[in-house]
Design a protein around this nucleic acid. Structure first.
Lengths: 140, 140
DNA sequence: ATATACCCGACTAAAATAGTCAAGTTTTTG
DNA sequence: CAAAAACTTGACTATTTTAGTCGGGTATAT
């Protein structure tokens, strides 16, 4: 049960921005160097973050990205959904044809999976970007 | 963020056993028919459940599998760990070389991922197989 | 002008997943 | 005792997902 790297890197990169911004835009190059994430990969990730209005971009020299909301207001769940990282712990839906077909004997565990999804989602809903920065260790 | 089918089928199959047992062993063939899971696949799954002492087997005609513990005592987390379904939402460990290397600036989100793992694991720790059967809808 | 940095779709290699196959062994029952 | 039911086990394979790269852009500050 894993999170994909796109989501992880997105959270890392945005946390990095929250720490290192200071009004001016933060370039992907800087994030790439600090966090050790490929620049090309970051571009792909930020493309999606931008489309989903998590960040806005500033083009040209000294350009980069800026957080749309403050870290205090940015929910982790917003970041994950920007990257299509759905928390749907199983593939089978009550009313889907695939692998379950909705008969009660066939998938007697449905309610359980639903509860699980809710449990995990509520974690992401209740965490803000700023929460991640609180107890980090000394930085460079 | 998904659970693999092995884990899902394992939980389904064990729930099926809890419902349909009645002292005698439950054959994989019956589970396969009721739950619509490939018999061959179930064999693979039960091999692991047996190795991890979740079920015991009865060979020969009228054989099958029996739950080692009662559904009230069987934790879902036991089932998942029997199938190596670790809840480790990210690949990078504080002291690993890979993708993170432990420097505080590089992975400022570590505490967060740890919290997430704990959050999910506690869900599985606190659920018993019997809990899944409580609010299931009418069966055949 | 030109270097810096964002923009964007297409592509690919590697890993994980889901599931099958083959070739057994054990035990009950007719 | 023969035969069928049912467990045992490792190896194999096709498909899907993931992670990450490539190439060729466009915008803008200096």
């Amino acid at each position: 049960m894993k999170l994909n790297t796109k989501s992880r890197y997105a959270v890392m990169a945005l946390a990095d921005m929250a720490v290192f911004s200071s009004d001016n835009a933060v370039s992907l190059r800087d994030i790439s160097l600090r966090q050790g994430i490929s620049l090309l990969y970051l571009e792909q990730i930020f493309l999606r973050l931008k489309k989903n209005n998590i960040v806005k971009s500033v083009r040209g020299i000294n350009g980069g990205y800026i957080l749309v909301k403050s870290p205090k207001e940015l929910k982790i769940s917003d970041i994950l959904s920007a990257l299509d990282q759905k928390v749907k712990t199983i593939g089978c839906k009550k009313d889907s044809k695939k692998s379950c077909n909705g008969k009660s004997t066939k998938c007697i565990t449905h309610n359980f999976w639903d509860e699980l999804d809710i449990h995990i989602n509520s974690f992401f809903e209740n965490k803000k970007l700023s929460d991640l920065l609180k107890n980090r260790e000394a930085r460079i």
